[in-house]
């Protein structure tokens, strides 16, 4: 299916929760959705017969300067089409529902996004720091992160 057709299907089903379509200079195109409806939309994308997005390619956090975003790249092995889904989150206490019940592959990638950005994934089966030590302070990939001077007495 073409991305346009997929977006139309989503819009007809979820209406106002599909906030915008980002296509210009963006490959694959993104559907920006509202964070509250994300688990439902994810389940629809996976289970609907014509869509069957059974494979989560990539889950990444992004720090646009005024707000955060979580970008999901999806792929369907049966229908061989690709799509992207994005949610925008505010800078203070960013949090969104976890999708690891829909795509179990999301677990480690959500933990990494939490570790490096501080975005909390509610309902996740396991949300702990994964790449940095447990007692690290701060979330390094944020644009306003300041490198610490020392860690456990060793110069950083």
């Amino acid at each position: 299916m073409e991305p346009k057709a997929i977006f139309d299907l989503l819009k007809s089903r979820f209406g106002g929760d599909i906030l915008e379509i980002q296509e210009e200079g963006i490959s694959p195109p993104f559907a920006v959705v509202s964070p509250e409806k994300l688990p439902e939309i994810a389940r629809f994308l996976r289970d609907e017969p014509g869509l069957s997005f059974d494979s989560l390619m990539c889950l990444s956090g992004v720090d646009y300067k005024e707000r955060f975003a979580v970008a999901y790249h999806l792929h369907s092995l049966k229908e061989t089409h690709r799509i992207g889904v994005k949610v925008y989150l505010p800078k203070e206490n960013p949090s969104v529902q976890s999708v690891d019940a829909v795509w179990p592959a999301a677990n480690f990638m959500e933990r990494e996004t939490y570790d490096l950005y501080g975005i909390v994934f509610e309902g996740s089966i396991d949300l702990r720091r994964i790449l940095l030590p447990e007692d690290w302070e701060g979330h390094p990939l944020r644009k306003d992160y300041k490198y610490p001077e020392f860690y456990h007495g060793i110069k950083v």
Binding site: E24, G25, I26, S27, M57, C58, H73, G84
Partner: peptide, 22 residues
């Protein structure tokens, strides 16, 4: 390069290496 976002994946010996570049 012009502003934009792209996701590309290649078949590496260990699997699919994807790069999401903004």
């Amino acid at each position: 390069p012009a502003a934009g976002e792209v996701y590309f994946r290649a078949e590496n010996p260990r699997g699919e290496t994807g790069i999401y570049l903004i």
